[in-house]
Structures are given as structure tokens and as C-alpha cells.
Amino acid sequence: KWEEIAERLREEFNINPEEAREAVEKAGGNEEEARRIVKK
């Protein structure tokens, strides 16, 4: 599940997989929260 979210974030925000994974981890697997983290 987290991998899927990280993949979507990576494609959408054009970030590297590591950044995407970190955002999802910080968000506890919550996609909306992960998006907010990435946008900062």
C-alpha cells in the first residue's frame, strides 16, 4: 500500500523514490498527509 502511494507521489510531484517513501512514512501511510509533506 505505502509503495503505491509513494509511486503516485513520485510521479505527480516528480520527486525521487526516497523522498516519496519518506513522505509516506512521516504521514503514517496517509496519502493526503503525505501530499502536504511533499508540497512543503
Score class of each variant (00 low, 15 high):
K1A: 15
K1N: 14
K1T: 15
K1Q: 13
K1S: 13
W2N: 06
W2D: 04
W2S: 05
W2I: 06
W2P: 05
W2K: 05
W2V: 05
W2T: 06
W2M: 07
E3L: 13
E3I: 10
E3Q: 13
E3W: 12
E3P: 07
E3F: 13
E3A: 12
E4V: 09
E4A: 15
E4S: 11
E4F: 10
I5M: 11
I5V: 09
I5P: 00
I5G: 01
I5S: 02
I5T: 04
I5N: 01
A6T: 07
A6F: 07
A6E: 09
A6W: 09
E7M: 15
E7F: 14
E7H: 13
E7K: 14
E7Y: 07
E7G: 09
R8H: 05
R8E: 02
R8T: 05
R8G: 03
R8I: 06
R8V: 04
L9M: 05
L9R: 00
L9P: 00
L9D: 01
L9T: 01
L9F: 02
R10H: 05
R10I: 13
R10S: 10
R10W: 11
R10D: 02
R10Y: 06
E11L: 14
E11A: 15
E11M: 15
E11S: 14
E11W: 15
E11H: 14
E11T: 14
E12H: 05
E12K: 04
E12D: 09
E12P: 00
F13R: 02
F13I: 03
F13S: 03
F13W: 04
F13M: 07
N14Q: 10
N14V: 05
N14F: 08
N14W: 06
N14Y: 06
N14R: 06
I15K: 02
I15M: 07
I15N: 02
I15V: 09
I15T: 05
I15Y: 01
N16E: 12
N16R: 10
N16Y: 06
P17S: 12
P17D: 07
P17H: 13
P17N: 10
P17C: 13
P17Q: 13
P17T: 08
E18T: 10
E18G: 08
E18L: 11
E18M: 10
E18A: 08
E18Q: 11
E18D: 12
E18W: 15
E18F: 11
E18K: 08
E19Q: 13
E19P: 03
E19W: 10
E19T: 10
E19M: 11
E19L: 13
E19H: 08
E19S: 10
A20C: 04
A20H: 00
A20K: 00
A20M: 02
A20P: 00
A20Y: 02
R21Y: 13
R21K: 11
R21P: 02
R21S: 08
R21W: 14
R21M: 14
R21L: 12
E22V: 12
E22Q: 14
E22F: 11
E22I: 14
A23G: 02
A23T: 04
A23Q: 02
A23E: 01
A23F: 05
A23C: 04
V24S: 02
V24T: 05
V24I: 12
V24G: 01
V24R: 00
V24L: 10
V24Q: 01
E25N: 09
E25F: 14
E25R: 14
E25G: 07
E25W: 14
E25A: 15
E25M: 14
K26V: 08
K26D: 03
K26G: 05
K26H: 08
K26M: 13
K26Q: 09
K26N: 09
A27T: 06
A27M: 03
A27G: 04
A27Y: 00
A27F: 01
G28K: 12
G28M: 14
G28E: 08
G28W: 11
G28H: 14
G28V: 09
G28Q: 13
G28Y: 10
G29A: 02
G29Y: 05
G29N: 03
G29T: 01
G29Q: 02
G29M: 03
N30W: 05
N30K: 06
N30G: 04
N30H: 07
N30E: 05
N30R: 06
N30T: 03
N30M: 06
E31S: 04
E31K: 04
E31F: 13
E31Q: 05
E31V: 07
E32F: 12
E32V: 09
E32W: 13
E32G: 07
E32M: 09
E32H: 09
E32Y: 09
E32A: 11
E32P: 08
E33F: 06
E33D: 08
E33P: 01
E33V: 12
E33Y: 05
E33H: 09
A34S: 04
A34E: 00
R35T: 04
R35G: 03
R35H: 05
R36P: 01
R36S: 09
R36K: 11
I37M: 12
I37R: 07
I37N: 07
I37Q: 07
I37H: 07
I37V: 07
V38K: 01
V38N: 01
V38D: 00
V38E: 01
V38Q: 03
V38H: 02
V38L: 15
V38R: 02
V38T: 04
K39L: 15
K39V: 14
K39Y: 11
K39Q: 15
K39F: 11
K39T: 12
K39E: 13
K39I: 15
K39D: 09
K39H: 09
K40R: 14
K40T: 13
K40Y: 14
K40L: 15
K40C: 12
